[in-house]
Design a protein around this nucleic acid. Structure first.
Lengths: 192, 192
DNA sequence: TGTAAAAAATGACCGCGGTCAATAATAAAT
DNA sequence: ATTTATTATTGACCGCGGTCATTTTTTACA
């Protein structure tokens, strides 16, 4: 039994990813065209689809990597001791996730796994997000009446809700930080 | 000043909508092709796009109408007095929203208005949803420490989260009703 | 080396959403 | 009625994601 994957394969894939990042640097995520990517990479169109199931799979990988990089930063932080500190810790990640409407759409589409038994990069970052937040909540001055995982899932739900409002005409005036702070105070430190 | 809109226009639009519904009955929302719709309606392809900005706009209208019909039913109900009753009231709507992955994606994409200053049918139903729930929460045995609108927004966020998990491989085993009940108990009747 | 089997790359081709200059139908004015 | 202005319809055409039979390259083995 030989090497399952050839050297050439890795090179081609790396070239495709590098080319894609260059294209994105030029025209943004939404402006990316597969044809431009293969042109830069110097391969045929069909080759792209031999390496990625579809354009969305490439986006899943690239955006997932971006989220992971932000989560690395977040994990290196000292444990936040308040809602304000939690919000602040997540601001850079949220800014990235909402840098383009198209990016946020891709994230939403992949946040629940794209297909059954097929958990992609972005879906994994959502799992990671919960695992990062749960211990914070356990250590901090927050409600203790419900399971830590459930509490963390709630934080995630409200984070998504707050980001959605960035693109919502009805709530355009309310900024992301203030909105998430409002949600998390109500969720994490209920007085009723 | 004459009638701004001709009779013919209304007829054509009605034919297009009717044709679209027939196509959906045949092949589902995801299977809908604009060409099939115009074929059934007996008009040219360009006509479709004179009546709808794009395919998404048609979906927005049709799915938005579906959600509105469910909200009509929900509004006719007696005010729920518990989390269980709230969940039950929303089950049919949630089943509709998650009848196809594509449908849920369209809903997410349009739940925050599609474009600035352009609030579509689905975005409106999200506003309506909050307005239906808020009075329920004010009257029922739920926490009173935060604003009613905020409380209702939270219900919406958790409803979306619960529906997302329907399509998520990581949580496929957990059913919608149980998941939402868990969320809403934690949100509406905190003990901490 | 030479050769056969497996893996990777190719590019012509297709499906389908969306555009637009040209045309037809309707309403308004004389 | 005839002309004029406005609005609706048409269908050839384009952009772009995605497919697949064919060709090229690599690997395994004699």
């Amino acid at each position: 039994m030989a090497k399952a994957v050839q050297q050439r394969t890795l090179q081609t894939r790396a070239r495709l990813v590098a080319a894609a990042q260059e294209v994105i640097a030029d025209v943004g995520y939404e402006g990316l065209r597969v044809e431009q990517v293969v042109l830069r990479a110097g391969v045929a169109k069909g080759t792209f689809f031999a390496h990625f199931r579809d354009k969305d799979a490439l986006m899943d990988q690239l955006i997932g990597a971006g989220i992971d990089a932000h989560l690395d930063q977040i994990e290196a932080l000292a444990t936040p001791q308040s809602v304000a500190e939690i919000v602040e810790a997540f601001m850079p990640l949220m800014r990235f996730m909402t840098c383009e409407r198209y990016v946020f759409d891709v994230i939403l589409r992949h946040s629940g796994a794209a297909a059954i038994s097929e958990i992609g990069p972005i879906a994994n970052t959502f799992g990671r997000h919960v695992e990062v937040v749960a211990p914070w909540l356990a250590k901090g001055p927050f409600r203790k009446d419900i399971d830590g995982m459930l509490l963390a899932e709630g934080v995630q739900a409200f984070t998504v809700q707050a980001m959605s409002l960035v693109f919502c005409a009805l709530h355009a005036e309310v900024d992301l930080r203030a909105r998430l702070t409002l949600y998390l105070n109500a969720w994490l430190t209920p007085k009723g």
